[in-house]
Design a protein around this nucleic acid. Sequence first.
DNA 1: GACACGTGGCG
DNA 2: TCGCCAAGTGT
Length: 295
Amino acid sequence: MTEAAGPLLHHAVASWYADHGRDLPWREPECPAWGVYLSEVMSQQTPIARVLPIWQRWMERWPTPFDLASDTPGEAVRMWDRLGYPRRALRLWESATVMVERHDGEVPSEHADLLALPGVGAYTAAAVASFAFGDPHTVVDTNVRRVLARTITGQQHAAASLTVAETRLAERSMPGEVGEANAWNAAVMELGALVCTARSPACGECPVAHLCAWQLAGRPEQEGPPRRGQTWHGTDRQVRGRIVQLLRESADPVTRTAIAATWPDDESKVERCLAGLLEDGLAEQGTDGRYSLPS
DNA sequence: GACACGTGGCG
DNA sequence: TCGCCAAGTGT
């Protein structure tokens, strides 16, 4: 099909979701908006399987924005454990503070207020508005982009970065009715996560394979240069990760010497990374010269 | 638009 | 083994 999604697609995906959608705790009707909000931030660039245990721990320890805002940002980073991109924990703490100071301690329900929170971009604002508050903003994540690229556009992969055309396509693909629109957001994302996957799509189990443009075209391999893979070994990101891990696992502040030992090969690299972490607020230096997570 | 930003599992 | 990839955001 070459037009935006129609009722056939909507119904097929919704029906599939009813049978195959995962029972994630933040999808329970009684889950507070705070739980939905945490799940969305934690899920950024992160597999759900790794989010689950961390989400459970956060919800037990900090069941409301007020509880998190009352603790230290360092504890947020510590509880973040190895989820990755620990600045997200910092932003979560900052956003909890904003909720306490400006939104009566609640997750704001207005899309514009959500978007203004630190660490919240187009995707997360739309997702929280739709999933937590039933306000059907168009959710466009990597799953949605891939599903639409295949079913509607007939391409194996979405563009390297989100384009205006993709956003417009996603908007046009939304059902008109509010309830259906919110259900569509969740269902199409789930389809991309479980069936219409990037590496090896399970087209044999796809509820819309019969009207998928890419499928009908014979699932052609995408031409063009492959995405450039990001290197890892020896990068600042790896060194920063080691330093934060050390700070996380230390009950007491650590010395400069201990930090230098996390990357023995290159002292200047450690120097630069530590400075970056201090700049980012992921570390701080005490009056005795030692380092710790932010207090 | 290109990059930086963590981490770990999978083919 | 190693590159790809996972519910992105900020600069």
